[in-house]
Design a protein around this nucleic acid. Structure first.
Length: 333
DNA sequence: CTATCGCA
DNA sequence: TGCGATAGG
């Protein structure tokens, strides 16, 4: 989803350093969990698991990354998805199918000793099941950070919070957040540095996309950006074959949106999707307040319940505690 | 993904 | 000390 938009938005992303990101970040929790679940795996694709076989990749990802963010003065607020809209049903079913196919291909690749294939298929077989989601919520709570329950799409709720000024920016890999009106989107909020991807070395740095800047540069309105997304496909419609973001941009700017829909998809009504991006279900009942880190709770949750090594967990807890103490002192002076 | 290890 | 390899759960 939203992958196509990259072709017209990628020119407007600005590299940023972690220090420039000091503040409150609304993290698209499902997006982050999926990322961790996909990537934190052994070479044959097996995720990290405790001795009962419960997946723990996401816990490792959240714990170590969040600790780093806190260290950098970034306070994450995790926004979880609620019930998806009816319009998303097809996309959800299609993703389920792909996951199931990938799982079979993963098994096959493992049997045949094809490690890189195994890893790839394992990644796309990743599923956010109820255990992953609930254990993630517990861990975030123990770290003293707020969880916001979106009534529908988490990206929509995060955008709403950013528009209200309750958070400074939204963190997601998906550009779709911009369609919901997110003023500032941050991608690649990771430890910056060199990384090997597909054998090639690339430098990863967080990047910022400002919605007004994108719209000004492309000389379009947000409504037009939404229409471009509808032409190329969103989570709520399949899009039109042969139309990518660049063609979509051209067509929308020349006022040909309606004509294309009439011609290619006569039975399709784009208005409910337009309306969903402009007025999605959101809630005001949330808090962005953090509480003290529950050190003992974290130790028991990670080490006793999920088999993490205290040798790895304790230094992180110490680091967090030290930062917390610093902040308390600062607020005193 | 992030932390840690081992070698130049 | 810095970087590539790999372990983590």
């Amino acid at each position: 989803m939203g992958v196509a938009l990259r072709d017209i938005l990628a020119d407007y992303k600005i590299p940023v350093t972690a220090e420039e990101l000091t503040g409150v970040a609304a993290v698209d929790a499902f997006n982050a969990l999926y990322q961790f679940l996909s990537i934190i795996r052994q070479p044959d694709g097996t995720p990290l698991m405790d001795d009962e076989g419960r997946v723990t990749s996401h816990l490792s990802g959240i714990f170590f990354r969040t600790a780093n963010l806190l260290q950098q003065g970034i306070r994450p607020v995790f926004v979880f998805d609620g019930a998806p809209p009816e319009m998303k049903t097809n996309t959800i079913q299609e993703r389920r199918n792909i996951r199931e196919e990938s799982k079979e291909k993963w098994d096959k690749a493992k049997r045949e000793g094809d490690l890189s294939g195994a890893f790839r298929y394992a990644m796309s077989s990743s599923a956010l099941d109820s255990h992953v989601i609930s254990s993630a919520r517990t861990l975030i709570g123990l770290m003293g950070l707020p969880v916001v329950e979106a009534p529908s799409e988490g990206e929509a709720q995060a955008a709403y919070m950013a528009l209200k000024g309750d958070v400074d920016y939204v963190v997601s890999q998906d550009y779709d957040t911009l369609l919901f009106g997110t003023p500032v989107l941050i991608r690649n909020l990771t430890i910056s540095g060199k990384r090997r991807i597909h054998g090639r070395q690339v430098t990863i740095q967080p990047e910022r996309v400002n919605l007004v800047e994108v719209l000004q540069n492309l000389d379009i309105t947000r409504e037009q950006l939404i229409d471009i997304a509808i032409l190329t496909g969103t989570d709520f419609n399949p899009g039109i074959r042969g139309i990518g973001a660049k063609t979509g941009l051209k067509k929308v700017k020349s006022g040909d949106f309606d004509a294309i829909i009439r011609d290619k998809l006569p039975d399709f009504d784009p208005d409910p999707i337009r309306d969903f991006f402009k007025n999605p279900p959101v809630t005001d009942s949330y808090s962005t307040q953090s509480s003290p880190v529950d050190r003992d709770g974290l130790l028991s949750f990670l080490c006793e319940e999920y088999g993490f090594s205290p040798d790895r967990v304790i230094p992180v807890l110490d680091k967090i505690a030290k930062k917390e103490k610093q902040k308390t002192l600062e607020s005193w002076f």
